[in-house]
Design a protein around this nucleic acid. Structure first.
Length: 436
RNA sequence: GGAGGGAUCGCACAGUGGCCGAGUGCGCCCGCCUGCUAAGCGGGUGGGGGGCCAACGCCCCCUCGCGGGUUCGAAUCCCGCUCCCUCCGCCA
């Protein structure tokens, strides 16, 4: 959610930022509603102030009236005065009733509109409409060359007997997968590695529920925009996490973090659920796009002035793990048109997948600035007694399964159909050097 | 799933219709006192929104878990919800 104050004070700056994003957000409507809201609010508060004063006096008069010690004349006087005041107060209350209704309605509409306006892009984000306008900022490793034609992961997986898509479909439908034997173990090893890796780099490990209240989705900025992307349990009205980001944002919802808390780095491993309702026929083969997957997510709460450098550090943390795994990858700065709703600036990290010959997104690291924090009410104090300020939040994929599995299988495959196990993973697999 | 109890300013509590625009203790901050420390004394101490001001500031409104209702007026009465605690049942 954008700051209403910012919209009020620098509407042209906001307008320009939204234009860069190709957003058709109803900015003018917001400005108009805000003006009207404040006008009525002012009026209502004036009336309430008068009524409060009357109430106080009525209270005092009541005491006089009920005081048997008070002279009869004084009590009679008080009674008359009190009757007048009650009449006036009744009138004010009636006027207030309608006004308050209007104020509340305006505020509701204003909030509703504000919730549909995306975050403003950082100045460094290139303007553009779609993927071609993204900018590759760096690359690590060279796509390996093979003296045979490399297989896609679904073929490798089936041949090795570690990936069973048919079984996934039998259990739950298409876009679900089953891992078996070394495959299942490999996935577990990757999770373990990722958690150990990022913990060693200063992130605190967090375990969270995978089902959260609807409120968490609103606060995290996933509702109303992404309602069609998520699973929802109607009976208990709980939502399945599309990403641990939602849980981690809400971890400090409506809190004022005391001095010394920031920066705060979290790493959480959770299952993620996505309906992929809008994915259409894209990525139908293999496990690139599935309804349930595992993910290790990185999350940061930081001081506003540090968020830009923290984003770079976050990307570096995600890249470091890919380097450790020996997977060639590149870092892409998303253009304005590709930015997520909450994000001011996003880097995607794409791994090379020789089997399908493409760069596959395995991480997305975003600086959400104060946008999510404002929505979720997450603030901090610089010092004891100083004014609370909104924190900046950042999130990034620390390890995306099963996509890393894809990259691993396809990069490490050998001519005989076996797959080498990267050095760094072996301790987690009892020293296993190769599949099978 | 059933039966009770609770939610008040960082913490512990007080407060059953108008002197509560919320009090006390602790904690914390400022000052006084004081060889030092402790004690003592005095003052201050949440969050949100709006308005005025060049600024320092000043004023108003909201906030006693959340949302409705009753009333001229609600922390207080009524209804719904959420969370926490205790006991029973069930259970990995």
């Amino acid at each position: 959610m954008l700051s209403l104050q910012l919209i009020r004070e620098e509407p042209e700056r906001v307008r320009e930022a939204l234009r860069r994003r190709h957003s058709d957000a109803p900015l003018d409507e917001v400005i108009e509603l805000d003006r009207e809201w404040r006008r009525l609010l002012h009026e209502a508060e004036g009336i309430r102030a008068e009524r409060n004063a009357l109430s106080k006096e009525i209270g005092q008069l009541s005491r006089t009236i009920n005081d048997p010690e008070a002279p009869a004349r004084e009590r009679r006087h008080a009674q008359h005065r009190r009757d007048d005041l009650v009449a006036r107060s009744t009138y004010l209350s009636q006027r207030l009733e309608g006004l308050e209704e209007q104020v509340k309605e305006l505020q509701r509409r204003l909030d509703q509109l504000l919730l549909t306006i995306p975050n403003l892009p950082d100045d460094r984000v290139p303007e553009g409409e779609g993927e071609p306008d993204n900018v590759v900022v760096r690359q690590w490793g060279e796509p390996p060359s093979f003296d045979f034609s490399p297989l896609p992961h679904w073929e490798l997986g089936e041949r090795l007997g570690i990936l069973d898509l048919e079984a996934g479909a039998r259990l739950s439908g298409s876009h679900f997968y089953v891992l078996k034997g070394a495959g299942a173990r490999l996935q577990r090893a990757l999770i373990q590695l990722a958690l150990d890796f990022h913990t060693a780099r200063g992130y605190q490990e967090i375990y969270t529920p995978a089902l959260v209240r609807e409120e968490c989705m609103w606060r995290g900025g996933w509702l109303p925009t992404f309602a069609g992307l998520m699973y929802h349990d109607a009976e208990e009205d709980l939502w399945l996490l599309p990403t641990a980001e939602v849980a981690l944002t809400n971890l400090h919802r409506e809190e004022i973090l005391p001095p010394g808390t920031l920066p705060c780095y979290y790493v959480a491993y959770t299952p993620c659920f996505r309906r992929e309702k809008f994915a259409g026929g894209r990525d139908v083969r293999g496990v690139k796009r599935v309804h349930q997957f595992e993910k290790v997510e990185l999350y940061k709460f930081v001081e506003p002035e540090r968020s830009a450098e923290e984003l770079e550090a976050l990307v570096e943390d995600a890249c470091a793990l890919l380097r450790a795994l020996g997977i060639p990858h590149r870092v892409v700065l998303l253009c304005t048109g590709e930015l997520g709703f909450n994000s001011a600036m996003t880097y995607d990290i794409e791994a090379w997948t020789p089997g399908s010959g493409e760069w596959l997104e395995v991480s997305s690291c975003s600086n959400c600035t104060d946008f999510q924090a404002r929505r979720a009410g997450i603030r901090f104090r610089r010092e004891k007694g100083s004014r609370p300020e909104f924190v900046h939040t950042l999130n990034g994929t620390g390890l995306a399964l099963p996509r890393i599995l894809i990259a691993l299988l396809e990069n490490y495959q050998r001519a005989d159909g076996s797959v080498a196990v990267p050095e760094v993973l072996r301790p987690y697999l009892g020293g296993l050097e190769s599949l099978p």
